[in-house]
């Protein structure tokens, strides 16, 4: 029979090797796989995305901005640009860095993956809002086209990500900016600014001077071929139609989305024995998770009593319309309530 010490030493060596190779995330195999799959691709893709975003916002990108965004040194950023240029993805002319059409469509593909994945996280998983972006940043580089198309199909080809940004289509088309030019909006209906074109600079300066930026509400008074008059920020403003056409607005007649109050209590604050009345389910809770909560009868106005906490600390059981339902903290945090004061 083998000497136990030898056997054990051999075994531990084997286990150590296996652990070194295959330990989740950090194991050599996984890292090697990542490196091989991405081969610096992630960095390149992030660079293209950065360039695209600057282009979309009509800001000039530079080696400095690139290095800053990717958290690499200037030299590395410059190397990266050289590599991208070799592959025909960008064109560097002096200090000006521009995307080539190929580079642009590559960037759009990555953005599509990113936003689709954010949409997926928001609709189909319990991941909280703060983590959407980070997780999508990780996954955008390793989903292949088939996966992405499948994902898009599963979710019914959504047009916008949860932040309201448009998701590019398979063909690399990005939905046009939402809204209509202010110069063509309907008089009499309140509108909200969704986009301000920041070029040419002189025009942009005028718009800024009127205090217009995304989110500002306007009331249109009059549109004539000569001028556009409206109330904004409590004063009456006037713009030339040519300039007003650089501001995109949407009608804000729809139900005013109730502002979500950060300081509102959520179900998670209730201790066993305390109760509260549901105000709303946060908009961050979407898709199946949201429906499930409503199926169980958790709707605005419902009385909910916290009953008990699991000994392992997490799910808490609540009494909802006569039934006892256990919810994890992540979900309880998305149900906003008003505490019911009288104690039993």
């Amino acid at each position: 029979m083998a000497d136990p010490v030898t056997a054990l030493v051999v075994a531990f060596a084997l286990v150590a090797i296996v652990a070194f190779l295959f330990w989740p995330h950090r194991g050599y195999y996984w890292r090697a796989q990542r490196v091989r799959r991405l081969g610096g691709r992630a960095l390149l893709e992030d660079a293209l995305k950065h360039l695209y975003n600057f282009e979309y916002r009509s800001q000039p990108a530079s080696v400095e901005s690139l290095g800053g965004a990717l958290e690499v040194s200037q030299n590395e950023a410059a190397d990266l640009l050289v590599r991208a240029e070799e592959r025909g993805l960008v064109k560097v002319e002096g200090a000006v860095i521009r995307l080539t059409p190929i580079g642009r469509s590559y960037a759009l593909r990555i953005i599509r993956v990113h936003r689709l994945y954010e949409h997926y996280l928001s609709e189909e998983t319990g991941v909280t809002e703060e983590d959407w972006h980070r997780l999508a940043e990780e996954r955008e580089h390793d989903l292949d086209d088939a996966d992405v198309d499948q994902l898009a199909f599963e979710m019914g080809n959504p047009a916008y990500d949860p932040h309201g940004d448009p998701i590019p289509t398979v063909d690399g088309e990005i939905a046009p900016q939402r809204g209509v030019p202010l110069s063509e909006a309907e008089v009499g209906t309140p509108v909200t600014v969704v986009h301000v074109e920041d070029e040419p600079e002189a025009v942009y300066a005028q718009i800024v001077a009127e205090g217009l930026q995304p989110g500002v509400r306007l009331d249109l008074i009059e549109i004539t071929p000569e001028r556009v008059r409206f109330w904004a920020n409590g004063t009456e403003c006037t713009l030339a139609p040519m300039i007003a056409s650089n501001v995109a607005v949407v009608s804000s007649t729809g139900p005013v989305e109730d502002e979500e109050d950060e300081f509102q209590d959520t179900l998670a604050v209730l201790r066993p024995g305390e109760s509260g009345e549901v105000v709303r389910i946060s908009r961050r809770c979407r898709g199946l998770a949201r429906r499930r909560l409503m199926d169980l009868g958790i709707l605005p106005g419902t009385e909910i009593l916290a009953e008990m906490i699991s000994p392992s600390g997490d799910p808490t059981a609540y009494r909802v319309r006569g039934a006892t339902v256990a919810l994890r903290k992540e979900q309880a945090l998305q149900i906003q309530i008003n505490r019911t004061l009288e104690a039993h």
């Binding site: 169980l296 009868g297 909802v320 319309r321 006569g322 039934a323």
Partner: peptide, 9 residues
């Protein structure tokens, strides 16, 4: 019968 309201959904 003990959880009528929820069941009526």
């Amino acid at each position: 019968a003990t959880r009528l309201e929820r069941n009526l959904n």
